[in-house]
Structures are given as C-alpha cells and as structure tokens.
Simulated assay, not measured.
Amino acid sequence: MKAPVSRRGVVVRQINAQTAGAKALRERRTAQLAVLTQGVEEQLYVDVYVLVVPGRDAGPRTKCATTAAQNRGWAITRTLTDTTGPGTDLALRPALALALDRITRGESTGIVAVSQTDFSSFADDYEALLDKLGRAGGFLDLAHAETAI
C-alpha cells in the first residue's frame, strides 16, 4: 500500500536527512582515521570487534572485519565479540568497553568492525562512540561504509 501523496514528501525528506547524516558521520570517521594512520610508518595494532545476537555464529562477521584489517596491513591484537545483539546500550557491551579501554591504555590503535550496525543504527549513539574514540586517541575503520546497506 502506497503512502498518501501528502506523506510521500515527508518520507522522502526523512530518508534524505538520514542519508546526509550517515554521510557526515562517515566523513567524520574517515577524517579521524586519516589523521591517525596516514604517514605512520610503524605497525598499527587494532582490535576486531563484532556484535551478534545471542546464539548466532560470529564467524562470518569476524572474518569480514579481520580481512578489512589485514587488507590495510594492520596487526590484529584481539578479536572481541559482544553477544548482546543490536539495540543494546553501548555502555552495556563488555567487549566494546574492553576495546575502548585498550585504546586508552595504548594497547591498540583502533577498532575494525564490519559496519555501523555493530555499534548502533542511531546517529547520536554512533556519534558518541566516535567522540569517545577521538578522546582516547583511537580510530574506527569499517569493512562497509555507513551509507552501505
């Protein structure tokens, strides 16, 4: 069933706003990544992070994120998995907390994940994560960009 003509414009504007927001977040993430990685000659150490629903095999997502890190030439120090599923508050994910703590302590330079959905589909939560990473001196790299489905 199609939305009434009067509502279609609203839906299109909402989709355009979401796409623009995702693009802005991608640009912010990639700028942060570039500042911390371009021209660096020493080996960078990263943690691979994946989020899966309870009972789901993390293997395929782990392989995807691991391949992304390896393609960049980065050394993977840990593979961390939260099994809390999407929609879980970022503060309630022990593996993500460990990854952020490892960056703060200088044991890792950044986090590599499959996509934004490993963190949150909500722009404000994702932006808060980028803020935390920036304050800790770390970066986030994704196998699939924020605007990818």
Rank of each mutant, 00 (worst) to 15 (best):
M1F: 14
K2N: 11
K2D: 12
K2Q: 11
A3S: 14
P4N: 06
V5M: 11
S6V: 15
G9D: 11
R13K: 14
Q14V: 12
Q14E: 15
I15A: 12
T19P: 02
A22K: 13
K23C: 07
L25E: 13
R26A: 11
T30D: 13
T30F: 06
L33Q: 14
L33C: 10
V35H: 09
L36H: 07
T37S: 02
G39S: 12
E41Q: 12
E42D: 13
E42T: 15
L44F: 06
L44I: 04
L44Q: 05
V46H: 01
D47Q: 03
Y49G: 05
V50M: 03
L51S: 10
V52I: 06
V52N: 03
V52E: 03
G55Y: 09
D57C: 14
A58G: 09
R61N: 05
R61G: 04
T62F: 05
T62D: 05
K63I: 10
K63Q: 14
K63A: 15
C64D: 13
C64N: 08
A65G: 04
T66E: 01
A69P: 02
N71D: 12
N71G: 15
N71T: 09
R72W: 01
R72L: 07
R72F: 01
G73N: 02
G73E: 04
W74R: 03
I76A: 01
T77N: 10
T77V: 15
T77F: 10
T79G: 04
T81N: 11
T81H: 08
T84D: 09
T84Q: 13
G87C: 04
T88F: 04
L90H: 10
R93G: 01
R93S: 02
A95S: 13
R102L: 14
G106Q: 06
S108I: 00
G110T: 00
V112T: 02
A113D: 01
A113G: 00
S115A: 11
Q116K: 09
Q116I: 04
T117W: 14
D118C: 06
D118E: 04
S121E: 12
S121T: 13
F122K: 13
D125C: 08
D125S: 11
L129R: 01
L129S: 04
L130Y: 02
L130G: 02
L130W: 03
G134I: 02
A136E: 08
G137V: 07
G137M: 07
F139A: 00
L140G: 03
L142T: 10
A143W: 00
A143L: 07
A145W: 03
E146L: 05
T147N: 08
